[in-house]
Design a binder for these strands. Structure first.
Lengths: 346, 346
DNA sequence: CTGAAAGCGCTTACAG
DNA sequence: CTGAAAGCGCTTACAG
């Protein structure tokens, strides 16, 4: 490759025969510059193809005008609405938004990205996810008071920061109540990654709802998936093979639910006639192998949350004096589709 | 919010009663530091909760150890495999990878992000996309020789940079030939966004293939979708309503194809018995409303391309002397699924 | 092995 | 309106 040589503000100043300060002023649209000066400088900037160095500028201004977003597994179609929210939020502010993705639930990698971002590359970060082993990251963030951040889905008490939360507990109650209203009494649960707080919350909603109704959770009615969504398939097969087969299954998320539906269909049973299934997320994008009915689900306003998170950060960065920590719990909404039917059985 | 105060290398040096240079040396794992010094410094770093400022460091080292990825509409499920490739590629190098998303085909926004990235925030950038109006961005990139980059899907001749290309022309020939092998003679085409090079290439493959076979492209057989995938639905309806209805349709991508299949089914016709449909991308994630058969498609190795792009950049940044510009055209592969049948008609 | 000093590319009081 | 100078937080020859 050719030799690297960047043109700096010095080159512009020398060529235009003005001081560094003057060049800086025209770059920053400062008022106090004589028109002819301004034009002269602008011309040489153009000639030389100069662009200001972002790192240098943010070093002295202590401001990067950027916001960083850190998530696990950016490729996951789950993020469709959330990313859209971030994108539109970004478009509506002057902040550049950059995304970092951490594979799996790798806490070290997450910490690495957060440290990187928070030390001179962004002014604020939004952190999505509720992996329980992200604790180290949060401890770090707690200490570093020079950066604003908002946490989505994570409600660590000791952390005083902006929190956007989702009423997973209530949402999962809505799901189970919906099943009960349709006459279901034998309701099982396939839950997600046990290392996430959401999983616990949704589980708790299920448990409490069942107990409050005086129903029984039969042997084998609670199935844990491993980290892979696909294992929802096997877990559903387990449930089907039970002597006391459930008439309805609440799945911790729609990815799991979609595999559960497949398992039912592959077993020669029908959804919802033989088994009702309800999910969580109202994820409207699924693997193309899915041929089942549309999944009844609990929706969380991810687009809104993504957009809000950027707006909140932008606002607080702009007006730090007026900034108040925000803690908001978003409500969920049951979306009836095609996978829940009335219980014909006992 | 509290007052912001970052702890800098100076604070560490003062507290530990050593020079800046020494602190710098232990941060950078330089060998020439006495063990007791090193420990002393490491302790005070821990006590003070110090992390080096990335902007300052990269300013002096002229190296950021980061790679930036710029795409349009990161939320699009199309990117599933590509993002996975980027993520795994990143994991395999020491480079941090950050993603920037440009909404729609907004060239200004893309230029903004590219300028931002290339001026002190990353060492290299990978640019995905073939929007024709990205020209300005490419012109800019051409001038700035202080950054390595790889372009995916864009083959601007004047641009001497790494190029990872896909044989869209050949792939689309494969698609149309497959249809002809199944006896189809009345083959229509629904093409994508006309502002992308891929659209042109796939169109050309279609045209040449049809002509080489001595077939005729009937009135109305070529339909342009607007920027929205959904318009594939309406365009397919158009094709169905034609007096001389085509027996097969080649769609520029699977997103369009999925809407085309829906249109056929909603018209009371069957896929592939009445109309065969073939797509491009082998996108395995679709909107949940899709109930049709699995879409026969032309696959491009997006995961591989994503991973390769990061590797190539990392390699060139590491060993600039040995760096040679890479230009690679990836082959496509026909994936037979369920939407192409034998032509029963004339 | 350690430190003083120069410098990376900018911005911003301060003086004129 | 313009410029000289200090400084943002680091690293790295250079001297010792």
């Amino acid at each position: 490759m050719e030799t690297r040589k960047t043109v700096s503000i010095k080159d512009v100043a020398r060529t235009a025969n003005v001081s560094l300060a003057t060049v800086s002023r025209v770059i920053n649209n400062s008022e106090n510059v004589k028109p002819e000066m301004r034009e002269l400088v602008q011309n040489t900037i153009r000639e030389l193809g100069y662009s200001p160095n972002h790192a240098a500028r943010s070093l002295v201004k202590r401001k990067t005008n950027c916001i960083g977003v850190v998530v696990n597994n950016l490729h996951d179609p789950f993020f469709y609405d959330l990313i859209k929210g971030f994108e539109h939020g970004a478009q509506q502010t002057k902040y550049n938004v950059i995304f970092c993705s951490v594979l799996g639930g790798d806490a070290d990698s997450k910490e690495n990205y957060v440290k990187y971002l928070t030390n001179g590359v962004v002014d604020g970060v939004v952190l999505y996810g509720s992996y329980l082993n992200d604790r180290k990251v949060l401890d770090y963030l707690k200490e570093s008071n020079h950066v604003d951040y908002v946490m989505i889905e994570n409600d660590v008490r000791e952390c005083s920061c902006n929190k956007l939360l989702i009423d997973n507990y209530g949402g999962s109650k809505k799901a189970v109540e919906h099943l009960m209203q349709r006459g279901h009494k034998k309701i099982a649960h396939i839950c997600g990654n046990p290392n996430k707080k959401v999983t616990q919350e949704r589980m708790n909603g299920y448990l409490d709802c069942i107990r409050d109704a005086g129903l029984e959770i039969k042997e084998g009615y609670i199935q844990y998936t491993s980290t892979d969504y696909c294992s929802g398939y096997d877990k559903m097969k387990m449930l089907i093979s039970l002597d006391n087969r459930p008439s309805a299954v609440f799945c911790s998320d729609d990815a799991i639910a979609s595999f559960a539906v497949r398992a039912v269909m592959d077993s020669g049973l029908r959804v919802p006639e033989d088994v009702s299934i309800i999910g969580f997320d109202n994820q409207r994008i699924l693997p193309d192998g899915y041929r089942g009915p549309l999944i009844t689900s609990v929706e969380q306003p991810l687009y809104q949350i993504g957009q809000d998170s950027i707006h909140i950060l932008a606002e607080q960065l702009e007006y730090p004096e007026e900034a108040k920590l925000i803690r908001h719990v978003y409500e969920t909404k049951l979306i009836e589709k095609e996978t829940v039917g009335y219980c014909g059985g006992i």
